[in-house]
Structure formats: structure tokens, C-alpha cells
Nucleic acid binder design. Structure first.
Lengths: 258, 258
DNA sequence: CGTCACTTTGACATTGATCAATTAACGTGG
DNA sequence: CCACGTTAATTGATCAATGTCAAAGTGACG
């Protein structure tokens, strides 16, 4: 088993700070940890938050680093990865807008986090945030809900890693992305869809527990079999969503949790 | 890829109810969801709880079933598994004493849960428990903490499933069990240890994303190489804990989260 | 002592990994 | 707008790890 190449390491400093953005206008207002906050609570958060940006490929935090903040992803895609001593890596989290980074009460990062696209984080210093957890039940409650959802997603992912074939893994991954894109447009996935993969082949391999060659081959196979058409490196045209789901190995009713 | 044989299905009814047990004497008093409750809170729980028992191999709930209770494992070992449409199964949770079963706010089971040994659950009907989540911050807080721990464990498990070799998977599994047995005795794992595997080869295969034949072969290989000695079907003697950790593929400091 | 469930071991097939070129897509500067 | 250079993606040939099918061994328990 060969180690996948690590994302190249660049300095971990943030590349920018942002001026004001009002929470009520925030694109993740209704999905993030703050989703259930009232306007008076929001204005409290307003005074505490600060923004940090990262460029594609940049590390956000490294496993074991001191981490004195927690954050919500506002824009972009970030990944959490774990590493074996010989360098093999496995992605263990894919953070999209509204997802939460960091753990209240823990002051060191448990995973490597990197930006795979331009990323903007809405950050809170950890200590004050821990305090919020005690004083604002809406935050604690929402965080529990989000953590339970993440646990469900992790378990779906475990099924994929442990038991699916390479082809099923690829089909499942594309299905997940298609579902999410549909959700963003507030529509149901189905029929013909055009989507954009948020990861390189190499990152897909890290996500799926494969090598990038196998990822490439199976993507090509799905293309050859008429399940998908490629459009540049990242673009995928799905001719029939149901057909793809059929390739994923899941139960017909599967993916409710994804 | 062949499906592992499912645990045989027996009627899902509980096999017994228990009389009183006082919370203050409960063996999981300081680790379960109720860990942070004060004595007045405990007496409230005392009036709501009820016990259910299950025999080895018995299903507790089936994916999709209505589930009108949540519970803590008091005694025994239970598993959560997911299934692909053709019957392949992957274990996604291993529930030990003090672990929590069910999700507040969700009325249908997301996974199959079965007893692998005699199991005793401390149960609460879901509706009243949901109410407790709002009125007793100690419960909600502890449940968040436990869920975050489970998420960490799930991510460790994902690394195992996605990137470890069969030998490393076996070594990792034995390491996890050894760590837990040490924790029960409030000692540090290390040196020579005698442990008891809580799962059959078949269940280990479901846990590790392998077949039972591969599990058996790799256990034999570790024996041949002098890392372990077998003692009956379930007994394992570890001659040197560090040696086993070295076989697991993890970083030297790994497993902090397990 | 026999039965049954679990485990081990063997022979062979298959999947996906590895090593190695080659090709395609995209950004840059002319 | 095009040629170039760089990075990502594809494809091919081969091999090792693990799955599959089959049979025999082991231990617990009635």
C-alpha cells in the first residue's frame, strides 16, 4: 500500500482578515452553530467573531498544534486528514460551508486541516466560546445536533471504506456531491445533473481509501459505461441520477443520512 | 467481495426486566450520560428509567424500526452495523458499558443494533428524555462530550478501514481492546497483558472490513511471529504491548483518542 | 461421546496497488 | 489568441494482498 502524496506544506499563517460582515446577512446564518440564536444573541457573537482566509492548498492547523480558536466554514472547502507513521493518509472529514472546525474544551488539534479551495472561516477564540457553550443553550444544542449529524456521516463513510468496491466508492462520492449541490439549490436530486467535483483525483483517493490511479480508472469506467460524461477536470454530467445511485451499492432508501 | 453472514435473526423482544437498582450504586455512574448529574437530578432519573436485557446474538433494534427509547449500556457488549443492498455488512459502532444508544429527537433507528454478549440496558422513553435534554443541561452537556468522543473514535476507525493492512488492522484491534481492559483496571497498558477478545472472528471481520478467513490468518501470523499467544478461542496473551503497537501502523503517540 | 458452532488452513481467483510513461487541461506571457 | 510549461489526469503492464471456495480441525456442551 503506497502512501498518497501529502498536500504540499506551506506556512500556516492566514492570508487575510476581513472587515465587518453582519451576521444577519451571513450566508450560513441558518445552518451553522449560530442557526438557532436570537438577534440579541447574534449581536453578542457579532462582537466576538473574526474572520480568517486561506488559499487553496494551505494548511489551517496541523495535528498536535495548539489551537486557540474554533470556527465555522463560511466559504470554501476544507479537509481533515489523519496520517499513519509511514505517511499514508486518510481524509476523515470534508468541511463545507456551515460546518464546524475544532472542539470546545480541547486546546490541541486532533487532525490536520487544510483548505482545498479559497476558504473563509468565522472564528471565535476558544475560551470565550467555551463560555458561550455554558451561557447560550442554543449554541450547545445546535452543536450537539451538528455533531450527531457528523457522526452519522462518519458511519456512512465507514461502510464505504470497509465494504464498497472501488467503483461503488466513486459512484457514492459523486452521489454525495450531487445531493449536496441539489440541496444548495433547494431542489431534489434526480434526472440529469451537472456538477463540479470539489476535490482533485488525489484528494478523492484520500477520501475514498484508494490510490489516485484507481480513482482515475474507475471514473473512466463510469464514463465508458455511459453513467457520466466528463467536462474538463472537475466537471461531471450525470445523465441519470438514479442510475448512479444504483452503482453505489447502497440500499434504494440509502443516503438519507448523507 | 462476499457478504459476511449476518448474525442470525431472532425475535426482537427483550428477555427480561429488572427490579430496582439505585443510580448511586450503578457501575456506569461516572461515565454515562448521567455522569454529571447531582443527586436531586439522579432521583428524577431514578423514577424514569427502566431496564431491558438481551441474550447474546439477539437484535436490539433493526435499522428503520421505530425506536421509542434511548439507553445506556450497563453491562455487556452491543454492536451497531450497516448493510449494503447485497448483504455486505460493516460494523460502525461497538457499544461498551456506559455507551449511549439512540439519538435524541430521532424516532427511527439508523442502524442495526445487536447484543454480542448478555446485555443490560438502562432505558428512558424518548419523549421524556428529549424533555430532559432541555431541562437538565448536565445531560445535554455530557451527551455532547460523549458524541464528540465517538466522532473521534469513528475517525480513528476510518483511518484503519481506509489505509491499514490486514495485519495492522488486527494489531490495532487487539491494541484497542488491551487499552480498554487496562482502563477498566485503572492501569496503563504495557508489558505483558492477558486479554479476552469480546468478539468472534466473524464480528472482528465486520469491525475491520475484512473476511473472517483473513482475520484468522492474520491472528495466526501474529502468533507465529511471537507477538501474541492464543489461549482458547477468545483469550490472547500479549508478550509486549509496545511490540503490538509497533505492528499497528499508528504513530508512536497515536491512539490518544481511542 | 456426538453435535454444533466457531476456527483454522489450503488452493486459487480477483481486486486494487505499484511502477512507469503518456496525454490532456489550464494558466502565463508573448 | 496562441505557444509553452506546469500540474493534474489517464492509461498500461505487472504484482501483491486479500477475497473466495472448500475442507478439516477444535472446543464447549449436552
Amino acid at each position: 500500500m503506497r502512501a498518497n502524496s501529502l498536500t504540499q506544506i506551506k506556512p500556516a499563517s492566514e492570508t487575510g482578515r476581513h472587515g465587518e460582515m453582519r451576521c444577519v446577512e451571513c450566508p450560513i446564518r441558518y445552518r451553522a452553530v449560530c442557526a438557532q440564536c436570537e438577534s440579541d444573541e447574534l449581536s453578542l457573537l457579532e462582537g466576538m467573531k473574526f474572520y480568517r482566509s486561506f488559499e487553496p492548498g494551505q494548511p489551517i492547523v496541523w495535528e498536535g498544534d495548539r489551537m486557540d480558536f474554533v470556527a465555522s466554514v463560511v466559504i470554501g472547502v476544507a479537509t481533515l486528514t489523519q496520517t499513519l507513521e509511514d505517511g499514508r493518509t486518510q481524509m476523515v472529514g470534508l468541511l463545507l460551508p456551515s460546518d464546524f472546525l475544532g472542539r470546545p474544551g480541547r486546546d490541541h488539534a486532533a487532525y490536520n486541516a487544510s483548505a482545498t479551495s479559497k476558504v473563509v472561516l468565522c472564528c471565535f477564540r476558544r475560551k470565550p466560546f467555551d463560555e458561550l457553550m455554558r451561557t447560550m443553550p442554543h449554541i450547545a444544542h445546535r452543536l450537539l445536533e451538528m455533531t450527531l449529524d457528523e457522526l452519522d456521516a462518519a458511519r456512512e463513510w465507514m461502510l464505504l471504506l470497509g465494504r464498497k468496491t472501488a467503483r461503488e466508492k466513486i459512484a457514492s462520492f459523486i452521489t454525495i456531491i450531487a445531493r449536496r449541490e441539489a440541496a444548495l439549490r433547494k431542489s431534489r436530486p434526480g434526472g440529469r445533473m451537472e456538477i463540479e467535483l470539489p476535490l482533485t483525483r488525489d484528494a478523492m483517493a484520500d477520501y475514498l481509501g484508494l490510490t489516485l490511479e484507481t480513482v482515475s480508472r474507475q471514473v473512466s469506467a463510469l464514463k465508458k459505461d455511459g453513467v457520466i460524461t466528463l467536462n474538463g477536470k472537475r466537471g461531471v454530467i450525470l445523465h441519470d441520477f438514479a442510475r448512479l445511485v444504483g452503482e453505489s451499492g447502497d440500499d434504494a432508501d440509502g443516503g438519507l443520512l448523507a
